[in-house]
Design a protein around this nucleic acid. Structure first.
Length: 131
RNA sequence: ACUGCAAAUCGCUCUGCCGCCUUUGCCCCGAGUAGUCGGGGUGGGGAGGAAAGUCCGGACAACACAGAGCACCGCACCACCUAACCGGUGGGUCCUGCCGCCUGCCCGGGCAACCGGGCGGUGCAGGAACAGACAGGGUCACAGAAAACAACCGCCCCGAACACUCGGGGUAAGGGUGAAAAUGUGCGGUAAGAGCGCACAGCACGCCGGCGCAAGCCGGUGCGCGGAUAAACCUUGCGGGUUGAAAUGCCAUGUACACCUUGCGCUCCGCCCCGGCGGAGGGCGUGUUGCUCGCACGCCGCGUCGCUGUCCUGAUCCCGAGUACCCGGGAGGGACGCGCCAGCAAGGGGGGUAGGCAGCGCAGAGUUCCGCUGUGAAGCGGGACCCAGAUAAAUGGCAGAGGCUUCCCCGCUCUUCACGGGGUUGGGGAGCGACAGAAUCCGGCUUACAGAUUUGCAGUUAUU
RNA sequence: GGUCCCGUAGUUCAAUGGAUAGAAUGGAGGUUUCCGGAACCUCAGAUACAGGUUCGAUCCCUGUCGGGACUA
């Protein structure tokens, strides 16, 4: 189902701060991907339910001064994730992992939807499989 | 028609699919005796003119508060509008610009008609932090004799000298400096001069009359005429308690016990083997973040009259301290409350999140249409409408159509010998553009802004 | 969301409303030296922006723009 409901969003302040402190990262241009594997107990606490991942999105104010531009980019990133997340979910459930994920927009220029969609697909392709 | 300026309005529309936030209108499912709660579906609603800057003013909330003065901050022509304002509307005064007008005045040129310049009035447009500089002191660089109660040169008088000149005094008309130099022009007057006097003009103040709510204006009259700076100190008048939704209230943050099990005990009902077994523990509603229990409150019903507790007591009394009020204590009085399984023991148990709910969109200084009143801001009356409420923060993505704008190509057409230029009712391609995202809510102000429309003014060109 | 503060040479700081905005350091050129350093001489370089008050503004006032601090 192509949805993006409240419990698919990463909203726990505690996990977000851990994510930036302990998480691993790689770049899928134009996005920087920060992620952290979670235990079943932690994910239940954060309200994952049966979901294998929660997502947060960020666009730095330093690169985009107006709120309109930042909101537009965040919407496009969420939309691309919404339409392609089933690939990501299949991969995670296959290896039985739970992931906290944050996507940070890197470019200084505002990107159109196709470029962001390509970045999200690249993120899913490049996402490391467990050793 | 085009260009510029000013004001006002708008700031792409529709369809399909997928998705997001919200909503108890409707339907379905689940839990419960029920109130109700949870989930799903469907329907409804879903950013702006500035949502921005946070520059003013309020609503609202908490805390504080006898009164007065000082200090501090803000405002400053007048009236009105408004919940209020440093906002708006109308009016006044001053300044600037413009061209037009004037039977106004002055100067220059000309035989004259008239022409040029200046001042004044009037009209139009724009602007003004527009209280006070006779309340007080302060400051005014450089230049200049002098920057505030001014004699450098000059002019005049007197004395000395009599070749030049020197001393005393008068004088603000002329000179030059400067941002600014002691009302302007003319006549009289004088030794020379001077508002010293007069006429006209300008400014300030007082009085009288008229108009106006007022600011102020007009006319008359009297008296006077030595800068600037208050967006430097200051004076006068008026206003201001402080802090702000991260305000504020509630729930949760558990050695207290919700809850579960066992045993004892209370009341009532039923059954029988008379000692046990089973069942029940008033009803409805609201609140307690949600759920179950429980608890609290209200009403009704039953029961009850004694007790401790809480609160109130300005117009009752006594006491303490004090000048007195406020204040503290007691007596007396009044109101409320207290019951309807209260309780004991042992064991078990220790949910999740880390915030949540209200404030917060709640019919409101609400939106919109019509009418009336008013020059206008606005007010009044009537009709219709209910219109965003997120919280790592909701409006997006894809596809198509319409419409608009600019550009390009082709076609058609007008003109030209041609090059070229103009038009478009056609077809195709590109673009949809600016400023910008609600965060408690309103009224303003300021700033940003592609493009479109309307109105007014000015200019240019063409036609009549 | 709210409250407050600050913008001067490339950098760090000065400057009663009054001449061409001053100094240190850095930069460029020159003198000196075999070369470099040091020293000496010379030069360039700034009031965030836009209005206003004033004869005159870095300074006073207003509005923008930018930066920063505090507040759970």
């Amino acid at each position: 189902m192509y949805t993006f409901s409240q419990n698919e969003r990463l909203k726990s302040r505690k996990i977000i701060s851990r994510l930036f402190r302990e998480g691993q990262a790689f770049v899928a241009y134009p996005l920087r991907v920060v992620w952290l594997p979670l235990s079943p107990e932690e994910s239940a606490e954060a309200g994952f339910g049966a979901l294998p991942a929660q997502l947060a999105v960020s666009v730095p104010r330093r690169a985009f001064k107006t709120a309109v531009a930042r909101n537009r980019l965040k919407r496009r990133i969420r939309e691309a994730y919404r339409l392609h997340k089933h690939l990501f979910y299949d991969m995670l459930t296959a290896s039985d992992r739970r992931i906290a994920l944050m996507l940070v927009f890197l470019d200084k220029e505002e990107a159109a939807y196709p470029a962001i969609e390509a970045g999200v697909l690249k993120m899913i392709r490049k996402f490391p499989t467990p050793a």
